[in-house]
Write a protein that binds this DNA or RNA. Structure first.
Ligand SMILES: [Mn+2]
Ligand SMILES: [Mn+2]
Ligand SMILES: [Zn+2]
Ligand SMILES: [Zn+2]
Lengths: 141, 141
DNA sequence: ACTATCATGATAGTGATACTCAAAATCAAT
DNA sequence: ATTGATTTTGAGTATCACTATCATGATAGT
């Protein structure tokens, strides 16, 4: 059994929720995608093989993934939430192209220490952070 | 005449747009506020003294301020755009409290150099960037 | 003052997200 | 395997911020 299936199964058990076919099917599709996906986009992928699964379920399941740490929600300023895998990945920021919309990733490295220092100075307890750079990518500039 | 009035007036002239009472009235209200304001919130402030001014005008005027560099749009993840003064202020990030919703600011300092380095490594032309830390503020933690 | 052009403000439209509920599925107990 | 309590699903609807439309009004150059 995949590590991610284990994580989801454990979370569901812990919360008294049910292990449904849909939840694990959507998880597999989600993990197979490399891009940052909106609920709409993932639903389109899901319904190719399984047209019965509704948008509501995909939408709710993405929120479930976010709750249990399997996914992270990101927002690139185009008015729709996107989701990305969050297991076995290092923290990263996004370079978002204003022209083609693509989001490149960059590792944060030393910035993470800076963030910790800033937070402690303000007495702020960090839950998560987002670092985005908007502009033009190599191709579009 | 206020510096900000000058900037707006110049921008309007340059673009062939008109100097209206509303635009400068809204600008004064905007500058007087210290918080990060949504269009709704600014409209509420504006209509206290001037109930004739409509939401559409406030909304469009905030976009105009953003175009001419008087304002910056920020998004704290609550599904509504907010705006802040952008003249004579240094770059800063935001510490956003998940409990009380307040947004503290922190100066970016050395992070700006890091950003420039990251961008050049990717051949990316920076237009603007956003650095947000979500968590719990001193009072709420 | 005249006229072209732009702005305003009320209204309606859009699209992503969130809620509702009847029918179906899950799962623990028998 | 059957039962029954509980959760989930999927379709439909509602909500909310934002955006577009357009008749009326204001601005600014002549
Ligand atoms: Mn990413
Ligand atoms: Mn700020
Ligand atoms: Zn691009
Ligand atoms: Zn707080």
């Amino acid at each position: 059994m995949k590590k991610e299936h284990r994580i989801l199964a454990d979370y569901l058990k812990q919360k008294g929720l049910k292990q449904t076919y849909q939840r694990f099917f959507i998880l597999d599709k989600f993990l197979a995608a490399k891009r940052h996906l909106s609920a709409d986009e993932l639903h389109a992928m899901v319904r190719e093989q399984n047209p019965k699964i509704g948008f509501s379920t995909v939408y709710r399941t993405l929120k479930l993934f976010t709750e249990c740490g399997l996914a992270k929600e990101v927002n690139f300023g185009d008015g729709r939430a996107r989701f990305e895998r969050a297991i076995d990945r290092s923290q990263h920021g996004h370079l978002i192209c204003a022209n083609c919309g693509k989001a490149e990733e960059f590792t944060l490295g030393s910035v993470e220490k800076t963030i910790a220092r800033i937070a402690s100075r303000h007495g702020f307890k960090i839950e998560r952070f987002r670092f985005k750079i908007y502009g033009l990518c190599k191709k579009c500039r």
